[in-house]
Nucleic acid binder design. Structure first.
Length: 872
RNA sequence: GAGGGUAUAGCUCAGCUGGUAGAGCACCUGCUUGACGUGCAGGGGGUCAUAGGUUCGAGUCCUAUUAUCCUCACCA
């Protein structure tokens, strides 16, 4: 015995020490090792703005379980960690921080701002990493990466230049989603749509020739300032005659044409649409088709420009009010309807986005998407659960060009240079460029790239690409990507695109999708609701193992889960249970006991029963983990430890240990042997406590985390003994059951007379009846005293002489009830077996099982009948 | 408009390839049984949303319906 264990398991006293033990031993580090197969996971890099939240706890736990399982299963296992610069989110935080000091970006200038941003990264970049460690994450910290570190930045430039050279990236004036709060463009994927109550303003625009009006409806009257046409459907008989005429724009007085375009829905509204190419994506397209001017009426913070002095400086909503008032005054307003429609908002700040025409960089996605779609279609990349492939295809098959430029300073600067003299553009990996035409120093594009541009490269940029490193060769493609369904479009799809384009190979084999962690009421955890639960506090209170196990056992792939403190407590209790099982083992163990390699030479039937059961468990846990059924695997380990090992086997060893001798020694051997397997099986789920216990039990000084994960072994399969011992258990249960029913306290012992056709089986159970079934002495096939209580199982009749407790009438009634139940069972099974279809078509195994059930039920009925006879 | 998810015990959820329903918590009854009351033993409690279908057999597969949640697209 190495040390005295406390009565309660105290995770706080253990976890940091164990984590240090692992890192001191460098056990998380993966090497290029041709003798082993690699298994690789790249972490979804958390933002450097981040605090660990429950979503991370779930994500990291699942990854760590897979990594630890594979590491123990003989793979060279790399879990590559890192963080994301998260351009827009981080910049917003820094700007807010500056604001509290009365500073703006312009006060600091670009260089000053970046200096501050890097300081931020220094300060906060490590917090999230330290928090990941609290969870027990076995990442290779020597390989920690950052999306803006030198290597990743090099990869970003390389990709941009290669895209450009292939004509897959271009700069152009397009209508994009503009966030007036973040003051940058954002991509389609970054827009959230939400249903908002609004109005439908019916307006009338006078025909310039004075022949009447055209009535139309709009949800955004303020954009009227930028109208450059009015459109109708070419097939619309009502309006055919107006096409080619002009209307005079109210308030502005501009003469604008009536155009015909099939975009207009005749059924909707009045069938007339005002066209504002600068402020609506559809209108932009209509405008392009009809060669209409694009008139931007708003500044970058969504205020009306100086071109409209009456409204200049008003924000879009103020301007709306003013313009509606003026329209009404001018007689242009027909009516106002309530109208609910969906409005795009910025996924970072929630501000209503403003469609806006501006000069941006775009990646052409259509061609790039093809191999990425094919990779999933062909099964080279699998989503678990499969249904998320639909989400993926849905997005990829209708993909739009990706706006990648951002009007931000924190991020990878676009490697494009412009000549102010001749307008030449150069895209280069160099840090500066000279105009090839006029020899002038060129000006670099001030914009940075979408943060997802660099995360798209994560599976290979972190392994050294574009260089051909041994790591890239060995660890790429990675094996499993674990992430939530909410970033399939942002991240997963773009990694597949980049992987197929630059590596010509899938970036990972399997995408394991998990759900969201919700609060105890099923609501999304969010800062604004203030319902977030801090995993660090949970760890502090209940231990990382408890949190991990709660997360692992409570989830099935793809489904959201609720946080529940009750569940965490149950898992904490489970850890404590295991701890106390260990205390029991160690209490009886000699000083110099080693963890046994194998079973005792001649194991008892219950030892074989345990070995056989643990063997089955190992087989199933491996199967489940291979199929990513992590929750099922966790549940099986839990049930085994609690029910089979603790509640049954440990109890079975007590009389043996008391008796002493060889049987006691064997029992101890078995206890430790089985505990060692249990610790290995549980380790991926609960790494800290298992390692701690292992260190207490095993004198080798080697870590549990590098032991071999148990697998099925033919030599541990004992079906006959397993079945035989189940009969003892069945009998013990039946006795306990009867005694409880009759309210006999366990302290009241009684003799037990066992009448059975399998005396050799029950012979071996005698000592257990005494311990576990309140038996004073057990006799096999020896006539029981008259009037004993009788308990029937399929394999035995159990007589307990407790005459004083027997109420003859009640006994009769009970036996008759049991008889009826047995008869019903038999009828049901007979029904099946006499069904020709069943016998002919059901698998032989199933039929055989039914026959066995039938014979057991018949045996039981027979015994009940005998007992009834004896009683009457 | 298109496509999904979910519906199982009082609550929260499992149920892997179809073989007469499980866990945790809660509840009831016993128990200071030689590690654990963060425990032990026993118990009650489910027409597996509804209606059809496939099958020898359906919680599990198919169709429709209802409820609820979500994704994408559109909405002048």
């Amino acid at each position: 015995m190495k040390k005295q264990l406390e009565k309660l398991y105290e995770p706080k006293a253990v976890e940091d020490r164990i984590y240090k033990y692992w890192t001191d031993g460098n056990y998380f580090h993966a090497r290029v090792n041709p003798d082993k197969k690699p298994y690789t996971i790249v972490i979804p890099p958390p933002n450097i703005t981040g605090q660990l939240h429950m979503g991370h706890a779930l994500d990291e736990t699942l990854q760590d379980i897979l990594i630890r399982y594979k590491r123990m299963s003989g793979f060279e296992t790399l879990w590559l960690p890192g963080t994301d610069h998260a351009s827009i989110a981080t910049e917003a935080k820094i700007v807010a921080q500056m604001k509290s000091e009365g500073l703006t970006k312009d006060d600091l200038g670009r260089d000053g701002f970046l200096e501050r941003a890097w300081a931020w990264r220094e300060k906060y970049g490590s917090t999230i990493i330290n928090q990941l460690k609290k969870l027990g994450s076995s990442c290779d910290w020597e390989r920690e990466r950052f999306t803006m570190d030198e290597g990743c930045s090099k990869a970003v430039k390389e990709v941009f230049v290669r895209y450009y050279e292939k004509g897959l990236i271009y700069r152009g004036e397009r209508i994009i989603n503009w966030c007036p709060h973040c003051l940058t463009s954002i991509s389609n994927a970054e827009v959230n749509y939400e249903e908002q109550a609004g109005h439908f303003w019916h307006l009338r625009y006078p025909l310039t020739d004075g022949s009447g009006w055209l009535e139309l409806a709009t949800t955004r009257p303020e954009t009227l300032l930028g109208d450059t046409a009015v459109a109708v459907n070419p097939k619309d008989e009502r309006y055919k005659k107006y096409v080619g005429k002009t209307v005079t724009l109210p308030l502005v007085g501009r003469e604008i044409p009536v155009v015909a375009d099939s975009y207009v829905d005749m059924e909707f509204g009045t069938g007339v649409v005002k066209i504002t190419p600068a402020h609506d994506p559809n209108d932009f397209e209509v405008g392009a088709r009809h060669d209409l001017p694009v008139i931007n009426v708003m500044t970058d913070d969504a205020k009306i420009t100086e071109d409209y002095p009456k409204y200049a400086g008003m924000d879009r909503y103020e301007a709306r009010k003013a313009i509606v008032a003026d329209l009404e005054a001018g007689g242009y307003l027909v009516k106002i309807e309530d109208y609910s429609h969906s409005v795009g908002t910025c996924y970072r700040c929630g501000t209503t986005i403003e469609p806006r025409v501006s000069l941006q960089w775009f990646v052409k996605m259509a061609e790039l998407a093809k191999p990425a779609i094919e990779a999933v279609r062909s099964g080279k990349i699998k989503f678990v659960p499969e249904r998320f492939e639909k989400n993926y295809f849905n997005w990829m098959e209708d993909i739009r060009d990706w706006c990648v430029s951002r009007q931000l300073w924190w991020g990878h600067r676009i490697p494009a240079f412009y000549c102010d003299d001749c307008g030449e553009t150069v895209v280069t990996k160099e840090d500066s460029a000279v105009c090839p035409k006029c020899g002038k120093v060129m000006r670099q594009d001030p914009d940075t790239l979408d943060t997802w541009f660099s995360s798209a490269l994560w599976p290979f940029s972190t392994l050294g690409w574009p260089d051909k490193t041994p790591e890239l060769e060995y660890f790429y493609p990675t094996n499993t990507l674990v992430t939530g369904w909410d970033i399939i479009t942002f991240w997963v799809s773009r990694m597949i695109v980049a992987g197929m384009e630059f590596m010509k190979e899938r970036p990972f084999e399997t995408v394991l999708i998990h759900g969201l962690m919700r609060d105890p009421n099923g609501l999304k955890m969010s800062k604004s609701l203030g319902n977030g639960i801090d995993p660090l506090e949970v760890i502090d209170q209940f231990g990382a193992d408890a949190l991990r196990f709660m997360v692992a056992s409570g989830t099935s792939p793809g489904n959201d889960m609720r946080y529940s403190e009750e569940k965490v407590k149950a898992c904490r209790n489970f850890a404590n249970k295991l701890w106390n099982a260990t205390r029991f083992i160690m209490m009886n163990l000699p000083e110099d006991f080693d963890v046994p390699e194998s079973l005792p030479e001649s194991p008892a039937v219950e030892d074989k029963w345990l070995a056989s059961k643990i063997n089955t468990l190992a087989k199933e846990v491996n199967d489940n983990l291979e199929k990513f059924e992590i929750g099922v695997a966790a549940q099986k380990v839990y049930d085994f430890i609690w029910d089979v090992y603790c509640d049954w086997y440990i109890e079975l060893t007590k009389p043996r240990i008391n008796a002493g001798g060889k049987s006691a020694e064997d029992a101890q051997t078995m206890l430790v042997w089985a505990m060692a397997r249990i610790l290995k099986l549980l380790h991926p789920f609960m790494p800290f406590i298992t390692e701690e216990i292992w260190q207490a039990l095993d004198g080798s000084g080697k870590p549990l985390m590098l032991e071999n994960f148990p697998v099925y072994e033919k030599s541990l399969d004992f079906p006959a003994e397993e079945e035989a011992f189940e009969k003892i258990i069945e009998a013990i249960r039946a006795i306990r059951n009867r005694r409880a029913e009759m309210n006999v306290p366990p302290s009241k012992k009684a003799e037990l007379f066992i009448e059975t056709d399998m005396p050799e089986v029950f012979e071996k159970g005698v000592m257990f009846f005494e311990r576990l079934a309140s038996t004073s002495e057990a006799f096999i096939n020896k006539p029981a005293p008259e009037g004993s209580l009788v308990i029937v199982t399929p394999s035995a009749r159990l007589f307990i002489p407790m005459n004083e407790l027997i109420d003859r009438e009640k006994e009769l009634a009970r036996l008759n009830k049991e008889k009826a139940a047995a008869e019903k069972d038999i009828a049901i099974i007979n029904g099946k077996l006499s069904n020709e279809g069943f016998v002919a078509k059901a698998p032989a195994q199933v039929v055989e099982a039914e026959r066995n059930k039938l014979s057991a039920a018949k045996d039981k009925l027979e015994k009940i009948t005998q007992s009834l006879k004896a009683l009457s």
